[in-house]
Amino acid sequence: MDVNKLILVLLAILLPPVAVFLHRGIGSDLVINILLCLFFWLPGVLHALYIITR
């Protein structure tokens, strides 16, 4: 795992939408992540980790 991915994983735990934005940019993944974070924090974190690690 390189340093960039490690930073994104840490950021995904703290601020999931920011991590998804930095990894994928503005798009459907970011909108989905923001909606998941609005419902609860954990689904947003899991989605962000999935986006970053796939």
Rank of each mutant, 00 (worst) to 15 (best):
P16H: 09
G44D: 01
L15P: 03
G25S: 09
L6K: 11
L49W: 05
H47V: 06
A12K: 05
F21D: 05
L35M: 08
L46S: 02
S28Y: 05
K5W: 10
P43L: 05
V9C: 12
W41C: 08
P43V: 09
L42P: 11
L35P: 11
V18A: 09
A19S: 12
L38M: 12
F21P: 00
V18K: 05
F40E: 11
P16I: 15
C37S: 14
L8Q: 02
F39R: 10
A12W: 03
G44W: 04
D29S: 12
A48Y: 08
L38V: 15
L35I: 14
H23Q: 09
W41H: 07
I7W: 04
L35F: 12
V31K: 02
L36D: 01
A48Q: 04
L6Y: 02
V18N: 01
I7S: 11
P43K: 02
G44Y: 06
N33A: 10
F39S: 12
L22H: 04
R54N: 07
H23M: 08
L49V: 13
I52C: 01
L10D: 10
L15W: 11
G27D: 00
I52Y: 00
H47P: 00
L22M: 13
I34W: 04
T53F: 12
I13W: 04
C37H: 08
G44A: 03
L38R: 04
H23D: 12
